[in-house]
Deep mutational scan, measured.
Amino acid sequence: MATGGRRGAAAAPLLVAVAALLLGAAGHLYPGEVCPGMDIRNNLTRLHELENCSVIEGHLQILLMFKTRPEDFRDLSFPKLIMITDYLLLFRVYGLESLKDLFPNLTVIRGSRLFFNYALVIFEMVHLKELGLYNLMNITRGSVRIEKNNELCYLATIDWSRILDSVEDNYIVLNKDDNEECGDICPGTAKGKTNCPATVINGQFVERCWTHSHCQKVCPTICKSHGCTAEGLCCHSECLGNCSQPDDPTKCVACRNFYLDGRCVETCPPPYYHFQDWRCVNFSFCQDLHHKCKNSRRQGCHQYVIHNNKCIPECPSGYTMNSSNLLCTPCLGPCPKVCHLLEGEKTIDSVTSAQELRGCTVINGSLIINIRGGNNLAAELEANLGLIEEISGYLKIRRSYALVSLSFFRKLRLIRGETLEIGNYSFYALDNQNLRQLWDWSKHNLTITQGKLFFHYNPKLCLSEIHKMEEVSGTKGRQERNDIALKTNGDQASCENELLKFSYIRTSFDKI
């Protein structure tokens, strides 16, 4: 039985969820670079991206490699990797027998973001014989899940209580170790020597080791999670996991709180800001991140802002960003909400898709409305799209047979046209069989910064309504002859009103 693990408890099935942008060198404390989270699957090609990484700022997932063999891993080693800020997950990587050479110096898994409450997941690794993470000293947050690894031993010899604050939620089941077939031998045991430290858990006094050649490092209890030197002297209180010299914040392997210019500090002093819960960055760093993602459509890219001495992905609820200094300031009234469309555009074809934009005031991208039916549609669209004030790209209304009016965009005031449909149009209306009105132009103002209007096959939309939009939106004169079809717009509506004058002759039985 794995020490510190839980057996036999019912657990939810383990679901495996399925960018080499360097964020800056980590400095003297770390020998390499800070790398983003990685999802490495199918083959070993991307694994080489770990070569210079000291910190993975995010998670590391290595999974679904069915053609790899043990010899493929023999020359692979990433000794610079010290810390993973989120979680480490391995799933069905064939041929991998140990992690001792792959990650010989991995010391800390912070667990800032977890995989279903777990910071370390080893699942269905069919050839893994031992973990071998002999320098792993601290899992700051989260638990361990090690399950269905039929060859995995050296679990009962690990004292997880020396690595985690609590072992109650560890789930370590259905491994070879369960069948008591392992016969784990710690260093020196074969020669009758006791080389590794022994600890007591559940009444068992057991030597602690990761492999037959690597003991588990056990520091004096007084050192807590700070770690200790090879001689057993406690590291500085700002260290986490390990250090090369005692009581020196510049000799830590990793930091308990924050890293700044080669030393570990309790908090980031001005003019620095907390970033990702582990390091200090200056304003320029946060500003660069903001600008890199301002026009990016890459998933996970955030326009970072500053709030409460932190550089964070977005302002919290009730705050909006001051564009001059990136500071989050309290909103006066309802907060603006910028919604970034991942692929640059979004099609609204149902109430469900409209709900995804609920509360958005600025759309960074283009909207395509293609709704053919739905219950209580006008009210639903207004509830979900009615706060949109600005669209950076274009607005396209296409084959939306259920629409009679666009009044559900009740606050839309600006279409920038930074991206144009077919390279020309910022407003595009095609084949809307029941569209009769755009907006009530006596109450609604709309500016279209650039781009043209396109109207074709809107049989109940009168040309007068379209011409009014040209005047109000500032697009009059931009359109070419064929942009607004004269014969297919309003051709099934009563669009022309003329005053009919009647004269009559009164007659009676005795007068003409």
Results as ranks from 00 to 15, higher is better:
104 P>Q: 01
212 H>G: 08
243 C>K: 00
85 T>Y: 03
76 L>A: 15
56 I>Y: 00
155 L>D: 07
54 S>G: 01
142 G>P: 00
168 E>A: 06
239 C>T: 00
272 Y>L: 15
150 N>H: 07
334 P>K: 14
238 E>D: 15
241 G>R: 10
146 I>R: 01
306 I>V: 12
106 L>R: 00
145 R>H: 07
68 T>L: 09
218 V>Y: 06
40 I>P: 01
111 G>H: 00
247 D>R: 12
222 I>M: 04
307 H>R: 06
59 H>D: 02
228 C>F: 04
255 C>L: 00
142 G>D: 01
320 T>A: 09
259 Y>D: 14
335 C>R: 04
236 H>L: 01
216 Q>I: 03
216 Q>R: 04
322 N>Q: 14
296 S>D: 15
298 R>K: 04
271 P>T: 12
29 L>H: 09
238 E>V: 03
162 R>G: 05
185 I>W: 15
110 R>W: 02
182 C>S: 08
314 E>P: 08
225 S>Q: 05
130 E>I: 08
209 C>K: 13
69 R>C: 13
183 G>D: 14
78 F>Y: 10
174 L>R: 11
41 R>G: 08
336 P>I: 15
65 M>V: 05
61 Q>M: 05
73 F>T: 03
107 T>W: 06
276 Q>N: 11
57 E>H: 14
55 V>L: 05
79 P>C: 03
68 T>F: 07
114 L>S: 07
165 D>R: 12
132 G>A: 05
46 R>L: 07
180 E>Y: 09
145 R>E: 02
249 P>N: 13
194 T>W: 13
195 N>A: 10
99 L>M: 11
250 T>K: 11
324 S>W: 12
138 N>P: 01
99 L>F: 10
72 D>S: 08
222 I>F: 10
301 C>S: 06
301 C>L: 07
80 K>D: 01
210 W>L: 06
328 C>H: 01
118 Y>Q: 07
190 A>V: 10
90 L>K: 00
134 Y>K: 00
202 N>H: 14
279 R>T: 03
293 C>K: 03
262 G>V: 02
184 D>Q: 04
246 P>I: 15
90 L>H: 00
113 R>P: 03
273 Y>P: 02
258 F>M: 04
311 C>S: 03
296 S>R: 05
204 Q>H: 08
317 S>A: 05
136 L>F: 03
280 C>Q: 01
291 H>P: 01
129 K>F: 05
288 D>N: 14
216 Q>M: 14
172 I>L: 15
271 P>M: 06
310 K>D: 13
147 E>G: 09
177 D>W: 08
264 C>Y: 00
243 C>Y: 00
274 H>L: 09
139 I>Q: 01
128 L>H: 01
148 K>Q: 08
164 L>S: 07
228 C>A: 02
147 E>P: 01
265 V>W: 09
32 G>H: 04
225 S>I: 12
308 N>C: 02
283 F>M: 08
55 V>A: 04
79 P>N: 12
197 P>R: 13
110 R>G: 09
321 M>T: 06
206 V>H: 04
80 K>T: 05
193 K>A: 05
274 H>V: 11
226 H>S: 04
145 R>S: 11
150 N>A: 05
274 H>G: 15
87 Y>P: 02
56 I>H: 00
39 D>N: 15
178 D>S: 08
